[in-house]
Design a protein around this nucleic acid. Structure first.
Lengths: 151, 151
DNA sequence: GAAAACCCTGTAGCCGCTATAGTGTCAAGC
DNA sequence: GCTTGACACTATAGCGGCTACAGGGTTTTC
């Protein structure tokens, strides 16, 4: 199959596939005479694996490690378990952080129930004031942000 | 105060302060004869405001909007309320996504209780298999990722 | 008067894509 | 057989929000 077909089969943009190749997650693809990439089922499955991992918010580095284990089936998978455990830890930490955030934001929102002059706005004023016990976000994990990509 | 003092006062790296200036969040600072930036209390307060907003995971664009309202105190702050409401929405969405993720990861983790051969590893095999009802993450908000920055 | 600590500008890198510009190849329809 | 359109290729730049240089100048401290 050509790259466009693979893209459909794995529900992945073409550019992303080429990016994964450059990034070393997919092996350099075989080429036709006219220099088009061609793929078999093995590569398709590998790509689907990668996309599953990305769907679980793993970094490409984490995925690289998992792929190494997939590529050496006789090795002991203890490191895989560790990786997943750590990743779960990162996600949990991030959930806790975001819940905190949500709480703070809702508190802040209550301080300006209705529209009024900016100078009187409880939100703007609240953001200016210094709160004390603020343990600013994340040093622990690698799960970031509060903003998803599209739109 | 010079930039280093401001950095301490607002608990913000010097480079980040310069970056905010370039990004138009802080006004171009006044300069000494030897071209050093100098700041007063107003700029310090503005920076602290920005850092509070960042602590609440707002984007620089969102913060720019808030600053516009701070800069025109007689305007109606309805848009501020809307922004905060939307931001709360983004955070809530992200929390739901991450909880989902956590659930999936824990399920996956259970499939390989103990270390064994990679080829037998429930995790690696689970990641290869196609799950059906996967509503892949995020189109709705702008709160992203599961990975925090440092370490 | 030398060394350390600070400041400056400009540029490149991080991640995981995404989007261009500019070119080449191929299959279908006339 | 020639045009049109869909697809493929490479190379490069951009996103956000910093962070980290390199290579210089200034100010403070001993």
């Amino acid at each position: 199959m050509k790259i466009g077909e693979l893209a459909k089969a794995a529900n992945t943009p073409v550019e992303t596939i080429r990016y994964y190749e450059r990034a070393g997650l997919l092996p350099d693809a075989a080429r036709t005479e006219s220099n088009y990439r061609i793929y078999g089922e093995a590569q398709r499955d590998r790509l689907i694996f990668i996309r599953h991992c990305r769907g679980l918010d793993m970094t490409l580095d984490e995925i690289r490690l998992l792929l190494r284990f997939k590529d050496s089936p006789s090795e002991n998978c203890a490191q895989v378990n560790t990786l997943i455990d750590e990743h779960i830890g990162h996600v949990s930490v991030r959930i806790r952080e975001l819940k905190n955030l949500e709480r703070q934001l809702k508190t802040l929102r209550k301080t300006c129930g209705e529209a009024r002059e900016s100078s009187q706005c409880g939100i703007l004023n609240g953001l200016s004031a210094c709160r004390e016990g603020e343990s600013l976000t994340g040093k622990t994990g690698h799960v970031h942000g509060a903003h998803t990509m599209k739109s």
